[in-house]
Structures are given as C-alpha cells and as structure tokens.
Design a protein around this nucleic acid. Sequence first.
DNA 1: CTATGTGAATTTATTCACAGCA
DNA 2: TGCTGTGAATAAATTCACATAG
Lengths: 195, 195
Amino acid sequence: MPVYLWGATLFSRQGAARSISSHNLAALVGVNAWQIRKDFSYFGDFGTPGVGYNIATLIKHVKKILKLEAVQKAALVGVGNLGSALLAFPGFGVYSFQIAAAFDVDRRKIGKKKSGVVVEDAAKLHILKERKIRLGIIAVPEEAAQGITDKLVHAGVKGILNFSSRYISVPKKVKVINIDIAMDLARLPYYVPSD
Amino acid sequence: MPVYLWGATLFSRQGAARSISSHNLAALVGVNAWQIRKDFSYFGDFGTPGVGYNIATLIKHVKKILKLEAVQKAALVGVGNLGSALLAFPGFGVYSFQIAAAFDVDRRKIGKKKSGVVVEDAAKLHILKERKIRLGIIAVPEEAAQGITDKLVHAGVKGILNFSSRYISVPKKVKVINIDIAMDLARLPYYVPSD
DNA sequence: CTATGTGAATTTATTCACAGCA
DNA sequence: TGCTGTGAATAAATTCACATAG
C-alpha cells in the first residue's frame, strides 16, 4: 500500500491529468494492473469505470487506510550520518510524517539545529510522553540500540523504526519495523547473472 | 533469506554455541520454526536432526544461495548525508559487500577521503567498466537519479540499489531494488492502535 | 528425547476473464 | 470503447503432523 501512495503522489506532481488508470499506476510502481484493482477493491470502490482513479480521492483513501490522515510526529534518536540524512530527507511529507524531535548523547551536538530541528539530550527522552510523540526512529550505533529502545518504550512510544542492525526486544504492544540497509543490498547478486 | 544470514551472523557473535536450532533462529528473526526448515530444505538439507544447524555451515550455505561467496564490490554515487552514512555503515561486511568506490559532483568533496574511500568525480563513472564493478548504489537528490542511472547502466552496472525516492527506468537486464526509507515508516501507524 | 526434513492439508495470494458502468 | 470491480480458477505459500536420524 505505501508504494501506491508513493506512485500516486509522484504522478500528481509530474502529470497534469486529474485521474490515473490502474495500468498507469501499475507501470509506475512495477506491479500488475489487476493487482492494484484487487487491492483497492478490498477497501471499497473509489474508481470510475472508463476513466480511472481520481488522484486526489485516491491519495486521500490510501492515507486513510494507512492511518495517515493526521500528521504523525516522530522522534529521531541518533544524529550521526544516518540520522542527519533522515532529518534532511525530503520524502517524509508525502506520508504525512514529521520528525518533530531529535536526540543525541553527544554534547557537541546538543542544542544545535539540524535541518530545522534542535538536537536534545538523549537523557531526556522521557519528555516524549508529555509531547505525545508516539513514534520513534532509532539511528544509533548498535551497542546503544537496546538501551534507547527501552527508554523510548518507557516514554510511551508505540511504534519504532529500527535502523540499527541489531534485534531489539520490546513489549508485545509495541510494533517494531527493522530496516537493515545492507540486507536489501544482499538481494541484488541473486538477480545479477553472475560473473 | 537475507534475514537468516543476518540472524545466523548475529547468533555466531553473541552465543558461544556451535549450532543453532530452527526454533532459536526463528525467535531471533521473528518467523516460525517450520518456515525456516521449509526454506532451508528447499535448497537441500544441511541440518543435523537432534542438534540443529551448524552455524558456520549455515552461513556458508546461505551465502552460496544468495551468491555472496565472493566479496561483491559496489560503487556509491552521491556522498551527501545518506551516502556518508552508507560509507560508514558497518553492516555491509556481513553480506560480503564492500563499497569500493564513491562518486560525487561536488568539487569540494572530490579527492577527499570518506571512511577510507576516496571520492571521485561523478563525470568519470565510466571507469567502473574497467574496474569490473557491477553494482551501483544511488544516493543522490531525486532530480539527478535518472541521469546517474543511465551513466551506471552505460558503465556496465548490472544491479542498482536506489535510495532516491524516484522511479528510475533501466533496461530489462538491469535489476533495481528501490528503497524509500520513508515508505517503511508509513507502515507503522497501521499497526499502532490509533490515538 | 530432540530437532530435522517432507509429504499432505489448509490457507492465502495471484491471475484470469468478463459483466457492468461512464 | 476504456477501465473498474469481482467471482472463479489457478498457483503459491503456510501450517501441520509425523516419520526419521542423531
């Protein structure tokens, strides 16, 4: 589903058309047309036969499905290379996300602004509770990952995006999505013919 | 499959055991035990009943399946925040990857060393052909993504890991894996109970 | 007694084909 | 005529149960 939102947004910026057909969207994101129709029809019908899907309606529906109607605030922990890249990343807006806070342990970074966000002391993660931030992004060295996780959970965070290449354990109620950027690279040689 | 390699490697570093059972590995990576046995048995049997899988053998086999036996060289294009993070990323070794070259258009970066790799001029991407580097990593602003892609393809690159949030078109023979770090974040609210 | 490997059963996803609406 | 939405057919992946090996 997220990929459809991505495709629809892309199309809305590039094309002048008001609608997009399942075929066009399919070509854009790299799946089959019937796949898209099936997926959408599962959530109710919002396409127009003979025309396609109205882009604005489509984006609205998919956002609703993904529960992205309201802007979601997330807290970033770890403002190293990766963290900085995430802060500067322009793509979060598409998915109604905003990195509303950033934390680090490094005294030299605390208090400074990065991409419009002031870096705060990682020791003060508990304030996330007051600020009602419920999503956390972990971009710290792997040794620190579990410790930060525990703090995030304690601060009431309900969802964690984990960029450190280590397994983090959390209570059942908290959802973790692990992203190992190297793991994706590992899929490549399988498709590449060989030497 | 990549996740099994990840799990096995993790286990080998943390535990002192020589073998791992499907149950333990399953718990580590978050799938079912029979799932793992099925997946492995598809590629032939290399486990020992009553004991489990010998870790060294397991890692070797999975690497073979993923065609990761030899170290794979990859070229990074775009040494911004994200590119720097990738260069500094410690996890590539697990998957037998090595970022053997880095390119950028910024004159101030060219010639300087970053994480042990000298940044070269992106105009000279064609030298990848001579160096026999067949994998490319795109970490440039989205406007530049397609142009760099074309250059990579022209230089004989067979697989591309695309971190830019734009669709890139390539000849059929070239495999692209798209990674939109924001897209993964979009999956989170769906699992998080709501407000 | 423990843990693998695999046929069989079940569930889920993919693909097709086509009726129906603009 | 073009494109959606969906039931039916097909394929694939999950799950189970258990024979078998250490």
